[in-house]
Design a protein around this nucleic acid. Structure first.
Lengths: 254, 254
DNA sequence: GCGATCAGCGGCACG
DNA sequence: CGTGCCGTTGATCGC
């Protein structure tokens, strides 16, 4: 396909705010928060009507170069008759960014009018798990009652804050996947902050489907607790299937 | 476009491991680690030759539903003559996942042969900054010498480990963007671990272009230091433009 | 393969 | 608007 032709297609479609797809051999250059270079190869360029700019290679999930919504799109034909398409982002307070795609060959360039105002409904988020646990704190231990959900702290927010039957506060951090070191650090921060403000015993607790070995050691070191949270999120109504306390390994005592 | 026709196009292209793009009105369902529903609207479905499966709406950067490389793709025509395309992922040890796209209308379905074995070159990563700083530790303070880069710890790895002119170890954590609470927690982990193993004073230090207010407070609380790292990563050779120590605010003393 | 972390992270929600 | 953090995070690198 002709470069002039493609340029015309893109320019017109931009005016009409359509989705534009261009496929061809191109090189890509990026300058902004970082910088990148990608030499000639066949790629797919997607320009959405909100300014989203995506360059995809033939493999891999992530766009290899991109620009978020709001980018200004510019097209031009260079001295060698090659089409270049640029996405430029200039926001005050942010680093100015620019991607330039230079096409050697264009095999396809077309625009599509996509009508779609539907929003996705997502189930099984951490928030969902939190809501479920809120109503089932007895699964953890008898007498545990909710104090606050999503308690906003100066430094982050606690998933669930509860009180046990002895009057101690329990900071519960929920993870929808394996808890790792940073989850323990997070919990530590919350427990420290709550301890500073409340004059009572404060327990720290992680509820997650799994925990890494190092994270478990760190957890034990702080005297926190881990509950294995078994759940099924593959349906609209996420279900908690089990919640069992994992004691410290006996080996820790030898 | 006819559903049968589109199915044939997709099936044939899958055999040839090409990139396939289908555009039309569809609903999308996902079940796996989480679950989602998206009712009818116009979308773009991209199937890459490595099994990557992407559903894009007309706006926004992220694919609204996706499946990574390795997904098995299935097509079928349902009782109402509608085309459904599914991506299924079954890996042992992982949760089985499935996306199903049901097309009401198909406006475009075509495959493309994208030849591309080029890899992107990225500049200005945290690693690059680390390399630069390694050779310019004097920018931080006189007499600071490198001990080890990317020092592997049981719990993570230290960006730069150095020794100051008084013999104290300095754990340096570099961030390419604003340091926030979790960066401080991270640094704390490393300092704790080094302290445990070395019998000398251990300093903690963050080098980042900025630091959030709370992170700064937490940093001060631990007695760590913040150096404002001014750099330009918008070119192939990233440059450090300045590195200035930010003292504690005087207000902290009142 | 597991684990820890980075990412041009993006996106969201809440102060 | 900043900030903290989740994400079906993904991608990478070291052990």
């Amino acid at each position: 396909m002709n470069a002039e032709e493609a340029k015309k297609t893109i320019d017109q479609s931009l005016n009409q705010a359509q989705l534009i797809m261009t496929i061809g051999t191109c090189s890509v250059k990026y300058e902004g928060r970082a910088a990148s270079k990608l030499s000639n190869g066949d790629r797919m360029l997607i320009i959405k009507k909100d300014g989203t700019f995506l360059v995809h290679q033939s493999k891999g999930m992530a766009a290899i170069n991109y620009q978020g919504p709001g980018a200004a799109i510019l097209t031009s034909i260079d001295d060698f008759g090659k089409l270049t398409v640029s996405a430029i982002r200039k926001k005050k307070g942010e680093i100015s960014e620019q991607i330039t795609v230079t096409f050697q060959e264009i095999s396809f360039c077309h625009s599509f009018d996509l009508q779609d105002d539907k929003k996705i409904q997502l189930f099984g988020t951490e928030q969902d798990l939190s809501n479920l646990l809120m109503n089932d704190l007895h699964l953890i231990e008898p007498g545990l009652v909710p104090v606050q959900q999503e308690s906003p702290l100066a430094k982050g927010h606690i998933d669930i804050l509860a009180r046990d039957r002895h009057g101690a506060l329990v900071v519960i951090e929920i993870k929808r996947r394996q808890a790792e070191l940073n989850a323990i650090s997070q919990l530590k921060r919350y427990v420290e902050e709550v301890s500073k403000r409340k004059d009572c015993k404060v327990r720290g607790m992680i509820c997650a489907p799994d925990i890494s070995e190092n994270a478990k050691k760190m957890l034990d070191g702080y005297g926190f607790e881990f509950y294995k949270l078994n759940y099924d999120a593959s349906h609209e109504d996420t279900k908690i299937k089990g919640l069992e306390k994992k004691q410290q390994e006996l080996t820790h005592y030898f």
